[in-house]
Computed example of a mutant assay.
Amino acid sequence: MTRLIVAAGGGGDAVAAAMLHAALYGDEDQAVILTYAWDRLLIDPIPGPRGADNFTGLEPITRSVQSVPATAEPIAPAGSTLPRLAAELPHTFALLDPHHGVEGVTRQLEELIDHLTPASIDLLDVGGDILAHGDEPTLKSPLADALTLAACCQVNAHIRLLVAGPGLDGEVPPDDLRPLFGPLVHSFTAQDVESVGSVLEWHPSEATAMLAATARGARGICEIRDAGFAVPLTDEGPTVHEVDLDDAISRNTLARAIMTTATLDEAEAYSREICGFSEIDYERNKAAWLTEQPPTKLDPDDVLSRLDQFQREARARGVTHTTFRHITEALGLPGNQRDHLRTLLIENRPHQYAALLWELPSESEQQAR
């Protein structure tokens, strides 16, 4: 029995898909997870998603769909977490390639469904930005989700849309999402996290880390992204809700506009027109800026000193937790230093490493140190 799970935005959604499969389907045959190779600049220095021609060692599933096995490799300078995910998780990761627009994604879905005849098809989004109108001031990455939503609405098969961790991506407020929620499908527990716990120790996804952290009991305010957006960690964090697919497409203006696009460039142009920006443009601009920055070497004493200052200021803002990605950005370090920084902090302040996040010490704790 095969289950097909479409990771709406790629990246952390693919990890959450593995956690969802373990929670809902247990010891059944493992899933096929259809996902983008779109790891942002922390992993991949090239803006935008990767296509099949950016890898060696892919294995064909259908005419338009290839899997990314553990032995596959991104062609330098591209980077991807997918081969490592394939090595550490028992699922098949099928590459979703959006370079032929929604028409191409729809074709991939149709071929995969015809080939697999899956027992179920779930479209999974962590956070809920797949339900964005397109004009939300906090919206940062609408394009990937809009592409998958638009394709899923055109496939002649029953697809269940699931939103996990409402608001944890910091893009659409939970209050805006709740009226769209149907049945509660699941609430993740600490036991559910065990299936992907080792992956989340290295994977850079902030939203999925917070999803897992709330399942393990983390509560408070978590600061994320380069801009330091504050995300509440609440009892709602580990929940998974079903949403009517028709309601989602009626709400998502961008998804409706790109239904017949045949190229990624065409879909991106609609994003600029409807949302006022393209997330790939943001990556292009940031990548250009990063290439101009001088190489940085971690000075442990300097880093820990600046960390203390950051923590004092963040605590004053009411922040209780943050992510290693945000600390990296806040300290002005390049993304490729994230793993080194994480190791340094955990070695020196192990008591602050809490449920995949970094817990900030209280004012009294900082004074005591």
Rank of each mutant, 00 (worst) to 15 (best):
S250W: 07
A218L: 08
A215I: 03
N252W: 00
F229K: 10
E273I: 12
A248P: 05
C222V: 14
P238C: 02
A257G: 08
L254H: 05
A218D: 00
A213I: 06
L211F: 05
P232T: 01
G228Q: 03
C222L: 07
T261I: 05
T263P: 04
C222E: 09
S250K: 10
E223W: 12
R216T: 03
M210D: 02
L211C: 08
T239Y: 04
A230Q: 10
C222Y: 15
P232D: 00
D265G: 12
A218H: 10
V240K: 04
R251V: 07
T263D: 02
A230P: 04
G217N: 01
I221S: 07
A255M: 01
R256C: 06
A218R: 08
E242L: 06
H241Y: 11
C222F: 15
A230I: 10
P232C: 00
D244R: 08
T253K: 08
L245M: 14
T263A: 08
A212H: 10
A227L: 11
E266W: 02
I224A: 02
R272K: 10
V231T: 07
G217K: 03
A269S: 12
I224S: 07
H241C: 12
A257L: 07
I224W: 10
F229P: 00
E223R: 15
I224D: 00
A227H: 13
H241D: 03
E223K: 14
T260L: 13
L233N: 02
A262T: 15
L233V: 03
V243W: 00
I258Y: 00
I224C: 13
E273M: 13
L254I: 09
D235K: 14
M210Y: 11
E273P: 04
E242K: 07
V243I: 11
I221L: 09
E266A: 14
M259Y: 01
Y270T: 10
T260E: 11
G237V: 05
S250G: 10
A227T: 13
G237L: 06
I224Y: 14
A215H: 02
A267K: 03
A269V: 10
L245P: 09
G217L: 09
E266N: 09
E223F: 10
H241I: 01
D235I: 12
N252P: 05
R256S: 06
E268V: 07
V243K: 02
T261S: 13
E223I: 07
E242H: 14
A230E: 11
P238K: 04
N252Y: 05
I221H: 01
T260Y: 08
H241K: 05
D265A: 14
A269Y: 05
L211T: 02
A230Y: 10
A267T: 06
E242Q: 14
T214M: 08
T253M: 10
A230N: 10
A212S: 05
T261N: 04
D244G: 15
R216S: 07
L264M: 03
T260R: 14
A255P: 03
A262N: 12
R256P: 04
R216V: 11
C222G: 03
